[in-house]
Amino acid sequence: MRQPPSRTTLKRTVVAGAVGLTATLGLVAPAHADSGVVNIRGKESFNTDTLLNSLCNGDTGTTYWFINVQTGQLTVDSGHGLPPKDLPPPIEMFQGSCFYPKSSSWTWTGPESRVSNTLVNCSSGSQLSQQLQMNGSTTSTTTSSVKVGGGIKWSALEKVLEFNAGAEYTKSWSYAKASGWSTTTGITVPPKRVGWLALRPDMRTVRSNPFFHIESYSWGDGHGHVTRSNSWRGRGYSNINSQGAYYDAVGNVLDGQGKPSGQYVARDRAVTSSDRC
């Protein structure tokens, strides 16, 4: 698994044009070097949440893009970053890679659900005690804050998020390793009642706000002059995210035996004609 980029020193970069190309490459000195991640939400005229979720859809390798900086529309650069003859505004091009750090996490109580068969006590005066088997499956889901047209590579994203959630969750979280579980416990049902067991599960959400690391960024003036930088739009910061672009990885909190942690609850109701007492 790749590690996030360390402190980036921005440099002036010259790229030689291919033979026969008339483009000239200008040089832009970055305003400053920034090792942090800059939230570009509100800094552009287009929806940067959609931009980040489109760029970071599970991939971790280098990707290559054209962008319309008026609309935010992305197009894959099949030339893989080769210097173009021209970049007519508002089209610009860039390349880089995505990282998926854990931004935050929290534990919450999931909805109560029945986890056993029912036990019917047709007696008028005796309690009914019996062992009941509780069973179910652990939960593992991933959601995106923004729906993107290009789709999300869920299988790749799960592996990335599970790794970046941190070692402390390896054994205590069902995410990306959902499995069936079963356990047996006793229940006592009063006369003329129907009983069952339910679970209020402890759930954990780990959120990741992905960021994109710019390796190269280029734009033109429409007259054969192309400028290249190694920061987002030449603004001096190479790591970008957008506050509203995130992925939520959700799974059961597990106990020491790998079963869902939570509150097990005995429930009962009055018998009815459908219980055939």
Rank of each mutant, 00 (worst) to 15 (best):
C122L: 07
G186L: 02
D221L: 10
N68G: 07
G125S: 15
S274C: 00
S126C: 02
A249N: 05
H225G: 00
A156L: 13
G149C: 03
T109G: 04
N239V: 04
G79S: 15
G110F: 09
G236A: 02
S124F: 12
N53K: 09
K153W: 04
S6P: 04
L254I: 08
V265G: 01
T9W: 06
G258N: 03
R12K: 15
V76N: 12
S124V: 12
F94M: 05
F66H: 14
R228H: 01
D59R: 13
V146Q: 15
S124G: 10
G72W: 12
Y169E: 01
P101W: 14
W181A: 03
S238M: 00
W65V: 05
T141R: 14
W219P: 01
N209P: 00
G195D: 03
G151M: 07
S103D: 13
I187K: 02
E158S: 07
M1D: 06
N209L: 11
N252R: 09
R207S: 14
A16P: 00
T183G: 00
G220D: 06
P111Y: 08
Q70M: 07
L87F: 05
N57H: 12
S208C: 07
S123W: 08
E162A: 15
A245F: 10
S174C: 05
G149L: 13
L197C: 03
G256V: 09
A167P: 00
I214D: 05
S273M: 08
D86F: 09
P201Y: 15
V76H: 13
N135M: 12
Q3S: 08
K85T: 11
Y175K: 03
W219G: 01
R233S: 03
N252H: 15
F94L: 07
G61S: 15
G262T: 06
P4R: 11
Q257R: 10
P4D: 08
R269H: 05
G251V: 07
T185G: 01
S129K: 14
W65N: 04
G61P: 01
W181D: 03
C56I: 07
L119T: 07
E162P: 00
F66E: 08
T63L: 06
D49Q: 10
S45A: 10
R12Q: 13
H213F: 14
T227W: 03
Q95C: 05
W232G: 00
Q73I: 13
M134E: 02
W65A: 05
I91H: 02
G262N: 06
D59W: 12
S155R: 04
T141S: 14
S129I: 02
L199G: 01
R228F: 01
G151F: 08
N53L: 15
A245P: 05
N239L: 10
P190N: 04
Y264S: 03
R114C: 03
T109R: 12
T170Q: 08
F163E: 13
R7C: 13
F212A: 03
T272G: 06
K259N: 07
Q95N: 14
